Simulated scan of single mutants.
Amino acid sequence: MKILIPVMLAVLGAGAGAGAGYLVPLDPSHLPLAHATEGETAIEMLDNHTEPTKIVKLSNQFIIPVIEDDGESALVIMSLSLEVTVEKSQSVFDLEPRLRDGIMKVLFDHSSHGGFSGRYYSEDKMAVLRKYLLQSAQDIMGGGVQGVLITDLVRQAA
Rank of each mutant, 00 (worst) to 15 (best):
A157L: 12
G143C: 08
E87D: 15
M78N: 03
S79R: 06
V154P: 05
V66A: 15
I150N: 01
V11K: 02
G147A: 09
H110A: 13
P25M: 11
V154N: 11
V86K: 10
V106P: 03
I55V: 08
L4C: 05
P97F: 03
M104L: 03
I77R: 15
S73P: 03
H113F: 10
I140Q: 02
G118Q: 04
P97K: 05
S112L: 11
L129S: 13
S81W: 00
N48M: 06
D101P: 00
M45C: 05
P6V: 03
N48P: 02
K125A: 04
E51S: 14
K57T: 07
L75K: 08
I43H: 09
V148G: 04
A20M: 11
K2D: 07
A18T: 07
M126F: 02
Q146F: 15
P52M: 06
S73K: 15
A34W: 13
Q135W: 02
E123G: 15
G15F: 03
G71C: 09
E68F: 09
H110Y: 11
L107E: 02
G21N: 12
S81E: 00
A16Y: 10
M126G: 02
I103C: 03
L129K: 14
A158T: 05
E87Y: 11
K2P: 08
F93T: 11
